[in-house]
């Protein structure tokens, strides 16, 4: 009996503790309030008074994470309060987004999103959120998707693929990702025989390409730049309306030029719950706009090969709706 009681005691304690940590998280700490008041000058709006949290729905250390951390670092000067980053990884960003729907709509918690969370994931399985649950803050960055071939595959152009006379293997990061959809659409439209191989992230995809385990892959400019320069990977085309004008990429044709009208790129933006007051969301949009126009952010974006695309909230809603329509059709096949 004694043993049983002690086990029960331990259990209740554990459960109580787990409960505590969850409630604690939701109460914004008031440590930096004073500091905030000092920097508060002419603004009539009494925001922000507490630290701001940006949720990154991907793991620490990835490209999304490093961008959020750069914004947080620069953002604390503009907001006058601390800006924290919280990573909630899992299921292509959908876990964090679902949870974010129920966050307190006070504007102190902002969530990063990549477009696929709204334009591909909902068509692969049921999700508990939609764009109507949120308000976009601002568009951040865009990364084109470039198709590359491994050096040993013998492929340097679409004609080579047609002449190969065998089935082509293509790799990408994650099921339902835009690099997958773009390549899938290309192979559908061209009628070439091919099979797609999903990997867990861009690094394993590129590793498999470098080791000649797959023929073709698609990834972002920053990820392939050095391999293209060293000749290990051969660029085939970019899935955008226009060529990437940067020096290293400007010779890569668009798929439109090559006769395949496929326009897909990964862009990221910030959202807040839809009930955040309009003054607060307008303030966030304005301040975030200043942050991503800061020269420190521009330098970060250049180093990481990101294009800064500060879409307005209305543009974000429109673009998401347009792209969702295209992908829905593609994913239904």
């Amino acid at each position: 009996m004694k043993k049983l009681v002690s086990i029960l005691l331990v259990l209740t304690m554990v459960i109580a503790l787990a409960g505590c940590s969850s409630t604690k998280e939701k109460e914004p700490s008031t440590q930096t309030t004073e500091q905030a008041k000092e920097t508060e000058t002419v603004k009539s709006l009494d925001f922000p008074k507490n630290p701001i949290t940006i949720i990154c729905p991907w793991a620490a250390g990835g490209s999304s994470d490093s961008m959020v951390r750069a914004i947080a670092e620069i953002g604390k000067e503009y907001f006058g309060v601390a800006v924290n980053v919280v990573n909630k990884d899992g299921a292509g960003g959908t876990i964090a987004t679902t949870e974010f729907k129920n966050t307190k709509a006070d504007g102190y918690t902002i969530c990063l999103e990549a477009v696929g969370v709204f334009t591909t994931q909902p068509f692969m399985r049921e999700v508990q959120y939609s764009m109507d649950d949120f308000k976009p803050v601002i568009g951040l960055t865009t990364e084109p998707i470039i198709m590359v071939a491994g050096k040993q595959s013998g492929i340097t152009s679409i004609d080579d693929m047609k002449a190969l006379g065998r089935s082509i293997s293509y790799g990408f990061s994650g099921t339902g990702s835009l690099p997958q959809l773009a390549q899938e659409k290309f192979f559908q439209d061209s009628g070439l025989e091919a099979e797609g191989v999903p990997f867990e992230g861009s690094a394993p995809t590129l590793t498999a390409l470098l080791g000649s385990h797959i023929d073709i892959g698609a990834a972002h400019p920053g990820e392939i730049l050095q391999y293209v320069e060293s000749g290990d990977l051969i660029p085939i085309g970019v899935f955008s309306q226009e060529r990437d004008s940067r020096e290293a990429f400007k010779n890569i044709p668009t798929f439109k030029e090559l006769g395949y009208d496929i326009d897909m790129s990964v862009w990221k933006f910030l959202i807040i719950p839809k009930d955040v007051p309009d003054e607060v969301s307008a303030y966030l949009t304005e301040t975030m706009g200043k942050i991503i126009a800061d020269e420190k952010f521009i330098e970060f974006a250049n180093n990481s090969n990101l294009m800064i695309t500060p879409y307005t909230p209305e543009e974000v809603i429109q673009k998401v709706a347009d792209e969702a329509a295209v992908n829905k059709e593609l994913l239904a096949k």
Partner: peptide
């Protein structure tokens, strides 16, 4: 993977080059 992120911010891209 995080180390690569750190190097990228410094403008150093690890790899064959």
């Amino acid at each position: 993977a995080v180390l690569i992120g750190a190097l990228t911010m410094q403008g150093i891209i690890p790899g064959p080059q």
